[in-house]
């Protein structure tokens, strides 16, 4: 399931050794919340997401919006994966 996959990726990419992926709520704010992530973490995460899902996040504003929560991020990836796939199919 994409949301579980994203939680795992977040914990691994940011080396959140004390965080159990399952403990991250789908609607929990990823930034400004209990995970205590900052803008460097956001960059690391964006790079990992781009590499893993073949998407392109073009600006800091777009990445801030996409990383609001696991729910929002999953929806963003689904939408952009579809867009990439559609444009490849032509």
């Amino acid at each position: 399931m994409l949301k579980d996959e994203l939680k795992q990726l977040l914990v691994e990419a940011l080396r959140l050794e004390d965080v159990d992926p399952a403990s991250i709520a789908d609607d929990e704010p990823l930034f400004g919340g209990g995970l205590d992530l900052d803008s460097i973490d956001a960059l690391e995460l964006v790079l990992q997401l781009e590499k893993t899902y073949g998407i392109k996040i073009g600006s800091s504003e777009e990445s801030r919006a996409a990383l609001a929560s696991i729910n929002v991020l999953a929806e963003y990836i689904e939408r952009h994966r579809s867009a990439t796939s559609a444009s490849v199919k032509g």
Binding site: L43, V46, L47, I57, G58, S59, S60, E61, E62, S63
Partner: peptide
């Protein structure tokens, strides 16, 4: 570019818009 603050958009300093560059 890797910091996501240099993108395809052209800068509009102090402009209240959705995406900065």
């Amino acid at each position: 570019h890797s910091l996501k603050i240099l993108n395809a958009g052209f800068p509009g300093p102090y402009e209240d818009r959705a995406i900065g560059s």
